[in-house]
Design a protein around this nucleic acid. Structure first.
Lengths: 232, 232
DNA sequence: TGCGGTCTACTTGTATGGTAGTGTGCATGA
DNA sequence: TCATGCACACTACCATACAAGTAGACCGCA
């Protein structure tokens, strides 16, 4: 979400703030946080902070242990795999329905986004790059007519993004990702559905595969495949 | 969710209760509810009830208007379409990955579920039928190894189920649904992936199409395709 | 009769106090 | 030295009080 522009109320503000801290790794996975402490930092009472944490727990970004504490979810491989599965399934299904539906204006908008990404790449602006990446995928999904399903993708994506942030220092691969975006747009414009979906699939897989590399480089943030003792 | 067995705490209890009231149409779409009133009924204070409503708002099952009130979400066609898209995409993608992975024990479990559904059909027990339906689809997804993505499907499914409940009086079609389940299991067991996915797709589509019929019969619960003035 | 302002009842939002449960560290004793 | 029990500090959970805002009823007036 690029636009956290409208602080509808204090809770929404707190929620955006805390989620950002988690996804950007400012709050590192596994670290303990407390309602009191966060409330103090943000300048609110415990109530809106607590409500935010409940929502974040629903997103699996934090784990609340009753009477014990709240901690930032460790990056669990199975969780990432699930997020990848959800994202990939929804984006590919949407793209398949988009073939032949995309208007010239929509294609233009996608091209504008890839251009903007190239500019961000040259500037080395990884933050903007990530924001544009988000916009691109959202716009792509919107063409299918299932834009409102982006909410679901966004939740899954949060887990992936958190892991990806660990590699944002290595900006060398941004060019590759942009060209993969472009390949999807070009195939979509030409009406080549198979090519579009296969391009998008390999793009999403590449992002996913990068994470496994990241894991080897930053094992401290990754948890063992714990079975949390919770029954399904 | 068949098992609301473990009342982990008061809020989880309230959440299950309220969600059930909504999905079973005990709280009709569009009707206004209040934190105080619900708290009184359940026998809790506003706090856990309020937290439950926040979560339900995130699921789009209720709409909270600040300082005005909370109302059960009307059944909006676009919302149902999105839910259908999410459910269909995830279940089909999972099934495609399940082909060749299903163990004999898993196939047996699926067959046991269809048998149980036939029994429920004979008894005319629609509640049990719905619960078994849920179990069946969850078990099917679990085989793919992406069982934890069922959470996501479950949220989408809640919207669909609510609309389906309107037709639970017409139990005549339960037999058809069961045989569609069986067709999926049989194809999966035989390793015929294409047949399995196409069977599941037509099954899910049938459920979806039923809803459009329901709409014509119960227009009062359906809202016009309102653009709620909310920017994406 | 119709219009306008005010007042009240009710809503959700936020702050705060008390409760129950958990983990930790320290003192005590073997 | 090590094990054990206990007190304490800390947590999230829930209840309650207060604040901010809205909608509608009601009354006065033109």
């Amino acid at each position: 979400m690029r636009a956290a522009s409208a602080p509808r109320n204090a809770r929404a503000h707190a929620l955006d703030l805390i989620r950002q801290k988690i996804v950007t790794m400012e709050l590192s996975p596994g670290s303990q946080i407390s309602e009191n402490e966060l409330a103090g930092q943000i300048g609110l009472s415990r109530t809106p902070v607590r409500e935010s944490l409940i929502l974040l727990a629903e997103e699996r970004l934090v784990v609340v242990v009753p009477q014990v504490g709240t901690l930032v979810s460790p990056i669990v491989e199975s969780e990432i795999a699930t997020s990848q599965f959800v994202r990939e399934s929804l984006e590919l299904a949407a793209l398949a329905e988009s073939v032949g539906r995309a208007t010239p204006a929509q294609i233009m908008a996608l091209n504008a986004l890839t251009d903007a990404q190239r500019a961000a790449d040259k500037r080395g602006d990884t933050e903007d790059f990530f924001a544009l990446d988000e916009e691109f995928h959202a716009a792509l999904m919107d063409i299918s007519g299932h834009g409102s399903a982006w909410r679901t993708v966004g939740q899954a994506k949060a887990h992936l993004d958190r892991a990806r942030r660990l590699s944002l220092t290595t900006t060398s691969q941004m060019g590759t990702l942009i060209e993969q975006h472009q390949a999807v747009v070009d195939a979509l414009e030409a009406g080549r559905g198979e090519e579009a979906t296969s391009s998008l699939r390999s793009h999403l897989r590449k992002v996913f595969d990068d994470i496994t590399v990241i894991r080897e480089q930053n094992p401290e943030y990754f948890a063992a495949p714990v079975t949390t003792g919770r029954r399904r």
